[in-house]
Structures are given as C-alpha cells and as structure tokens.
Design a protein around this nucleic acid. Sequence first.
DNA 1: ACAGTTGTGGACTGATCAGTCTCCTACTTC
DNA 2: GAAGTAGGAGACTGATCAGTCCACAACTGT
Lengths: 191, 191
Amino acid sequence: MGRPRTFDIDTAVDRAMELFWRQGFEATSTEDLVESLGIARGSLYKAFGSKEQLYALALRRYCQRHAAGLTEVLDRAEQVRPAIRAVLLELMEADLADPERGCLLVNAATERSAHPDTVLQVSRTMGQVESALAGALERARVRGEIAADKQPQELAQFLTTFLQGLRVMGKARADRAFLNNAVEVALGALD
Amino acid sequence: MGRPRTFDIDTAVDRAMELFWRQGFEATSTEDLVESLGIARGSLYKAFGSKEQLYALALRRYCQRHAAGLTEVLDRAEQVRPAIRAVLLELMEADLADPERGCLLVNAATERSAHPDTVLQVSRTMGQVESALAGALERARVRGEIAADKQPQELAQFLTTFLQGLRVMGKARADRAFLNNAVEVALGALD
DNA sequence: ACAGTTGTGGACTGATCAGTCTCCTACTTC
DNA sequence: GAAGTAGGAGACTGATCAGTCCACAACTGT
C-alpha cells in the first residue's frame, strides 16, 4: 500500500482554486502553488500531474459549486423573481467585497479562450446556469408569476448574459449604486 | 538630432495591442512582441520602456477607439434605439467572428484587476461608455423616443453592464441565437 | 568632414519558469 | 520484523522570462 498521503486532496484543490481565482492561470506559478498548498513540488506533480490539470480540477470544482448553488436557490424558492434578485445581489456583494477575485468562470472565459478544454468547461457551465434560470422561469410562468407571453428560455439567456456583465463591472470597480441600478433594470425584463 | 527611428510607433502599438488582445498580458512574452513588431529588443525598450508601459499604451489606444466609436455612432444616429441595437449586434458579430479576441477592455478588467493603473483605465472607459449611452438616451427621452418616466442614467448603467456580459458570452462560445435573444430582451428595457 | 546624438541589433544577464529525479521516510502485508 | 510500495522533500534541469548593454549605424548641425 505504501506511505499514506499526508495532505488532503480536496483542501489542496480548494487552495489552488483560490489562487487561480485571484491571480489567473498565467500569473500563478507552480512555486505559488507549492507554497500555498503547503506540499512539496514532487507531491504536487505526483498528485495532480501538471499545472494545467490542477487548474482544470479547480475550475471544474468551481463550476460545479456555482451551478449547484444557483440551482438549489432557484429550486427552493417559493417565488422566482425575488430569488433571482437575491442571487444577483448576492453575487454583486461578493464582487464589491473582493473585486480582485470576481468570478472564476468569467476569468477563465476571458483568460483562456484559446484553450479548448477550458472553453468547453465554461460553456457547459453557462448552459447549466441558463437551464437553471429557464426552469425556474418556466415554473414562474406556469404559476402566473410572470406573464404568459414571456419566453423562459429567452429570458434565461438574457439573465445569464447580464450576470456575466455584472461580474465584469464588479471587477472594473463599479460602485454599489451603479450595479444596483443595472440589476433593477435587468429585473424589469421579467415584467 | 541623431539617427531617425526606422519603425512607426503607432503601427508598433497597434501590433502590440493585437497581441495583448488575443493572448492577454501574461501570456504575451517580450519575444512575441519583438517578433510581431519586427523591431529589436533594444529598440522596443528604448521606445516603450517596459512591457507594462507598452501594454498601458495599447490599452489606452483601444479604450479611446472603443469609446470614440460608440460616441460617434450614437451621436450620428437619428433614432437612438436602432443605433443601440446596431452597436450591440455589431459587437456580437465581432465576437462570433473571432471569439479568441473578445473585448480587450473586458480582458483587461478580468486579467489585471490587481493592477491599479489598468483598473483605473478600464473604469474610466466604462464611465465614458455609460455617458455616451446616457447622453443618447436623454436625447431619446426628450424627443419622446422612449418613455418620459425612464431614467437615462439607470438605463445606461444597465446597458453598459449588459454589454460586458455579451462580450463574455461571446468568448464562452455562445451561439448567435443565444446572443440575439439576449440582446432583444435587453433592448426591451427601453420600452 | 567631423562632432554630437540617437536609434539598431543582438549577445548577454540573472531570475524564474514548469517539470523531473532521487534519496529518504512511513506505511501495509505477511 | 522484513519485504514491498508509495508519498515527501528539495536539489536539479533546460527553457524561457523581462530587461540591459554595447558596438555600430545613420542622421543633424556647424
């Protein structure tokens, strides 16, 4: 069986995710990873193979949490509209609190658009975000919470797009009033 | 007076802009720049000082063109609403045609959010975009093209945010139908 | 034509890059 | 407790990084 691993893989991936999130792929060196993960280079390469593969793992985990979190909030919600507002405002607050981080999904989409694996992961996750929103909006439509002539999928595609813009403006240091106005106008699309 | 420069500074900045646009700051090496600009390292450093300064120049130029282009289109327009649609669709087409490039402004906002100079340049340009839109919308409101109870600034902040999202979704390889739906829903905010 | 000045090209620098190798340690199984 | 196995630590690799240096070229003013 051999010597057991003295570090936790999940914890290590979380720390790597934090670094890539904050600094991007290119600006994060393997030295940064070794320091922050608290393990030696040899162990890092034995466990994860390469910087690219560790990035892929970290991104996949972020995407899963991101999509799962959104789906859960929308599924739980009794009313869809306040739930969507809550989601947008929560992410807005995250950006205001820590603008250097932003959204790893957006960072990945922009920094690594020449890397097919990353692009695929990003676009799949965007699809999940869209689906979660479309599902919630469809339920809202059936319940009469939004007008019957609205197309849930079109609204979902709009909201998915708007959400990414919100994250970009958060990184660009737009202030709370600006972002709040943007969110309120966007929510007007549901009327 | 000394030996005259044998390359054109403006052309060199344009080529650097293209490289940074496509690859980002970190992934572009000085070797790439030397090759693409067709000048020697010594000349590059004598003319531009450092990779950072050349990036700053390239970004500033992009921002100026971006803001000026938008302002001009909106100022020329007889009707504001079709002009805004045209702007959004034009940028959408640019992303569909060349998704690896996207928008340098968005790329800069996400990749370099830890660099104050870049952040300042980006946020100033976002402000210009907002102003251009707000000005056009105010004129539209006065002319009765949009409802009198709409707030031009709020709409402008929304559209500015949405626009950045459109560029991100373009990079994430969303298809034309998706982006088109998003744009049409967004334009609904003007109703 | 000569002095002064500034751009050019490319060799060169030390630092850092991602990734490998090897010796050592710590565990399981029998 | 011995044999077998797998992780840990960190020195090491060649490549590449951003940036410097300097001998030389090409121009201006006198």
